[in-house]
Every structure is written in structure tokens, then in C-alpha cells.
Computed example of a mutant assay.
Amino acid sequence: MKRVILVVEDSPTIRKFVSFSMLSHGYNVIAASDGMEALEKLPYEKIDLIITDLNMPNIDGLELVRTVRRTPEFKDIPIIILSSLSSQNEVQEGLRAGANSYLIKPFDPKRVVYEVSKYLN
């Protein structure tokens, strides 16, 4: 059975690029344009991993990570932050919020696939 990745990104271009990378490596993808849309989809889909941006409207990536970690049925889903925020403080804040990995944009698609494979294979 194919694993399902929830890609949460407000930029349509980056969302399509990350989704294509995941699809081409055999994963199914569900896309959301912000944290609010992601939280609306979580109860209705079997999500195996979340890739999220941080800077998004409505509910940002940090709040998404914190909410997922506080929700018992979703708290163990691996989360990868993919953000242009690159300071050590921002990376630490993302990891403290509960992300498993933090990747900085611009990113190498092979690195994203590698990070995903650490949690799903």
C-alpha cells in the first residue's frame, strides 16, 4: 500500500514541485495550502507523514506542528518542516515544536526524498 504524504505549502509552485517529487518516488500526496486546510484534512485521510512550510496564512507551520503533536490520534505522524527561515533559532523553534526534521529552502529534492524515506521505509 502506498504511503500518504500531506504537503502543506501556500506557494502553488513549491507545493506542486514537492508533490511531484513525492509522487515520482511512489508516494501518494494530499496537498493543503495552509495549516488550517491541513488540519481539516487530517481526520479524513490516513496520513503517514507531513511536509510543511512555516510562513503560511491562517494557521502557520509552527502552530500546525504543535496542534498535530497535541492531538493523540496524530501525535506520532512524522513531520518535516521545509522553510526559507534558516536561522539557528528558527530551526530550533521548529524542532522544539515537535518537527522530526527541518530542511531549508531552496532545497534539493533528493534530500527531501531521503528525509521522507528515513521515516517511511
Results as ranks from 00 to 15, higher is better:
L62W: 10
D34T: 04
T71D: 10
I50N: 00
N89P: 05
I50A: 01
M36P: 00
E73G: 07
E73Q: 14
V18Y: 01
N28R: 14
E73K: 15
T71C: 08
Y44S: 10
R3A: 13
K16M: 13
E9G: 08
E37V: 14
L82P: 02
I81Q: 02
A97V: 12
R15K: 13
D53I: 08
P43H: 11
R3T: 11
I50S: 02
E9I: 11
G61E: 00
S19K: 07
V113P: 00
G61L: 04
S101G: 02
V8Q: 05
V65P: 02
S117N: 11
T52Q: 03
M36S: 06
P109K: 05
F74E: 08
I5Q: 00
I5S: 00
T52R: 00
V68N: 05
A31N: 10
Q92F: 15
V8D: 05
D34Q: 03
V91P: 04
D108S: 12
L39V: 11
D76T: 15
I77D: 07
D34G: 02
R69P: 03
D48F: 00
V65W: 05
F20L: 14
T71A: 12
L49V: 06
L103T: 03
N121D: 13
H25C: 10
P78K: 02
L39I: 12
P12L: 08
P12T: 07
S33L: 09
K75G: 09
I47S: 03
D48I: 01
A32F: 04
V4D: 07
I50V: 13
I77Q: 04
M36Q: 13
S24E: 14
N28V: 12
M1N: 11
R96L: 15
E9M: 11
Y102I: 05
L62N: 10
K2C: 09
E40Q: 13
N89T: 15
K110T: 13
S11T: 09
R111N: 11
D10Q: 06
S101Y: 10
S83Y: 00
I59M: 08
E37A: 15
E73Y: 09
I47A: 05
H25V: 09
K41G: 07
S83E: 03
L64F: 07
D48A: 03
L49A: 06
E45D: 11
S87T: 14
V113D: 00
S83P: 02
K41T: 09
L120W: 08
Y119L: 01
I77R: 01
N58C: 10
V113H: 01
R3Q: 14
N55G: 06
A97F: 13
V116L: 04
V91G: 03
I59H: 04
D76Y: 12
G98K: 04
E93F: 05
S84H: 07
E63L: 13
L103V: 07
L95F: 00
K16D: 12
A38F: 10
N28K: 14
T52H: 04
D10I: 03
G26Y: 05
S83H: 02
Y119R: 01
S84T: 11
P106K: 07
D76W: 13
S86A: 15
L49H: 04
K41E: 12
